[in-house]
């Protein structure tokens, strides 16, 4: 290790804590992330898996600056961004981008695709002419026709809208894209194609992904490394194939066994294995309960 540059993480999150104000009068704040560590290398795809309420979306929003951390630190390309000001955040928009889950609400229904894509470029100081040229390149990159520029989001299907959202994220040539359940709202056949587009773009541009999903299969498909989140704690991190196929942590094992396989025979085996384990867990608990 002579130079630190290639191995230095692009994003380094240490002991990240996030609390939301409690509901009701003088309620205690609720902590949804209890000290999460993660790091993403340049060009890497880190999958973050978890069920509802695990805090997976909150991690992404904290990295994007959409929620304020209540503790811990976030370092991006060597700079501390934990308490970035609004102005610093705007500057970070060049480097950190996002693709959200719902392609129906993540695009302003009243704006044409061309405006949606060129707006961030113009804000970052591009001339309108350059922006227009770049928008055409972007549309081509995500596999949309260039006449999409003058059309409204509602004229596109879910899969196509998600391509627009990907193009918008790519516009400033970012180093990291936070992808929050980007294929969950899509149909099966569309899902696979959009995932392939993500992988293809990463190979060509070297952008890093934080790929958040509830679906082990999706995460397995795109991630180099995977972290498993359970009720605000990262319970397991490791190489993608290892974590998603032969996990160590009991929760990840439970998650894997609960996900049905698309094969009646294999699924019967998996189901029996899951039911056997659940039975064991009950038997372990019951004597304790009796005593």
């Amino acid at each position: 290790m002579t130079t630190t540059a290639p191995t230095a993480p692009l994003l380094d999150v240490k002991d990240l804590r996030v609390s939301f104000p409690g509901r009701g009068f003088r309620a205690k704040p609720v902590e949804v992330l209890h000290g999460v560590d993660l790091s993403i290398a340049p060009g890497e795809a880190l999958g973050v898996v978890g069920e509802s309420g695990s805090g997976k979306t909150t991690i992404g929003r904290a990295v994007l600056g959409l929620v304020k951390p209540s503790g811990g630190s976030m370092t991006f390309a060597g700079r501390d961004i934990t308490a970035a000001t609004a102005k610093e955040r705007r500057a970070l928009a060049r480097d950190i981008q996002v693709v959200f889950q719902d392609p129906y609400t993540s695009l302003n229904p009243a704006m044409e695709i061309g405006d949606i894509l060129s707006e961030p470029l113009v804000v970052q100081g591009a001339t309108p002419k350059d922006a227009r040229a770049r928008v055409r390149t972007l549309l081509d990159q995500v596999g949309l026709p260039s006449d999409a520029v003058h059309r409204l989001p509602r004229e596109f299907s879910g899969g196509q809208r998600q391509r627009v959202a990907i193009a918008r994220a790519l516009a400033p040539e970012p180093k990291l894209i936070v992808c929050d359940e980007p294929v969950s709202a899509l149909d099966l056949s569309t899902q696979a194609r959009v995932l392939d587009l993500f992988i293809d773009i990463q190979r060509r541009t070297g952008v890093a992904y934080m790929f958040i999903s509830h679906d082990l299969a999706v995460v397995r498909h795109v991630s180099h490394r995977v972290g498993v989140l359970y009720r605000g704690d990262m319970v397991e991190t490791g190489p993608g194939d290892k974590v998603t196929s032969a996990p160590d942590h009991p929760y990840t094992q439970k998650l894997l066994l609960a996900a049905p396989v698309s094969d009646p025979v294999a699924q019967r085996q998996r189901r029996e294995e899951r039911q056997r384990r659940a039975q064991e867990a009950r038997e372990q608990v019951q004597p304790a309960g009796v005593v």
Partner: peptide, 16 residues
Amino acid sequence: TVRTDGPVAAPVPLGT
């Protein structure tokens, strides 16, 4: 379908 290719550390710029 597990991702097998490693991260591309050196970015090849997209576009122009």
